[in-house]
Computed example of a mutant assay.
Amino acid sequence: MPLIEALPVGAGTAQWNVWGTVARVVVTDPALVPDAEGLVRDELAAVDGACSRFRDDAELRRACTGGPVTVSPLLAELVAAALTAARDTGGDVDPTVGGALCGLGYDRDFAVLTGCEVAPAVRIFTAPDWRSVRLRGRQLTVPAGVLLDLGATAKAVAADRAAARVAAHLGTGVLVALGGDIATAGPGPAGGWRVLVQDRPGDPACTVRLPAGAALATSSTASRTWGRPGELLHHIIDPRTGRPAARVWRTVSVAAFSCLRANTLSTAAVVRGHDAPALLGGAPSRLVTPGLDVLRLGGWPA
């Protein structure tokens, strides 16, 4: 996953575990680290309460009832982002794969799931079409029996929102990293934010510089895995099959001017497989094969 290779001179940082990954906030003014961390934690807590698939009290759980429900502005934003990602990718990034993920055993927080010695028996689900979900303003209708999973986009939206909130409230340059999702806001350090892109130790590495306001997302078929020997699964679902996408790419990294857009493209590229380059077009992208060969597109630096 992307990491901050070196802190800008005079910057400060805080990090903690959340959602089965690591949250990190970096601000150009180190005196503002405690306030920035508090703002980011508050934002992540709000997103978790709105759309966690693993909390019985999450608002999204109550909204998946089969009838129209008036939801909070935050949940409406998160669902709208997921539906936009689905539309922009021709359904490659589909929020209605929640049932498929549960059937594959991903039915609890990933930090808990990885502690299981044996994964539940695999059941195959065909994901319903994202177009069956209706959102009109704040009125959400999810067909009966459909379980939404916003994981493919909500973490990216959370990174965008958290970075924007810190910059607006504190007037500082900020980088927020949630695992493979990075968003920046406010004035950046001289020369941009220096980010090391590497999924795991030993994998090919590349350092990029993100200008202020830019974002980066990395989707991986190697990082969030579970199962048994000979049956290793990952979390990026091909909606056409209800199964993990074929491992054509080990990781896909994309830069954009919102983390949501970068994550939409990186996730869809994993699902699209061999057709990913056509999907990505001119977006700065870095694709790594299971054999660790690297394909760079859209001006991604060598």
Rank of each mutant, 00 (worst) to 15 (best):
A168E: 15
L292R: 15
T141G: 00
P8G: 10
G99T: 10
H274A: 15
P284E: 09
G99Y: 08
L232D: 00
A215K: 04
W226R: 05
P95I: 13
R243I: 02
L32H: 04
G180P: 05
R53C: 04
A81L: 10
L44K: 07
C116Y: 03
A212V: 04
A76D: 13
V71M: 05
R24H: 07
G151K: 03
G186Y: 08
L101Q: 15
L265H: 04
A86S: 15
T267M: 02
A222Y: 02
V93E: 06
A185H: 09
R240L: 12
G103T: 13
G91R: 07
I4V: 15
D107S: 14
W193M: 03
G151M: 06
V118A: 14
R247V: 14
R165S: 11
W249Q: 00
R87M: 02
G171C: 12
G282K: 08
L104N: 05
A111H: 13
T89K: 06
G49P: 08
D29G: 07
A276Y: 03
L295T: 14
P95F: 09
V270K: 02
E5M: 02
P189I: 12
A255Y: 00
L287A: 12
G10Q: 10
V69P: 00
D35M: 09
V270E: 00
D129L: 02
C51D: 13
A31I: 06
V208L: 13
C102H: 15
P239R: 06
T21V: 12
S219L: 01
H234Y: 12
A11V: 13
L75T: 11
W193Q: 01
P239M: 08
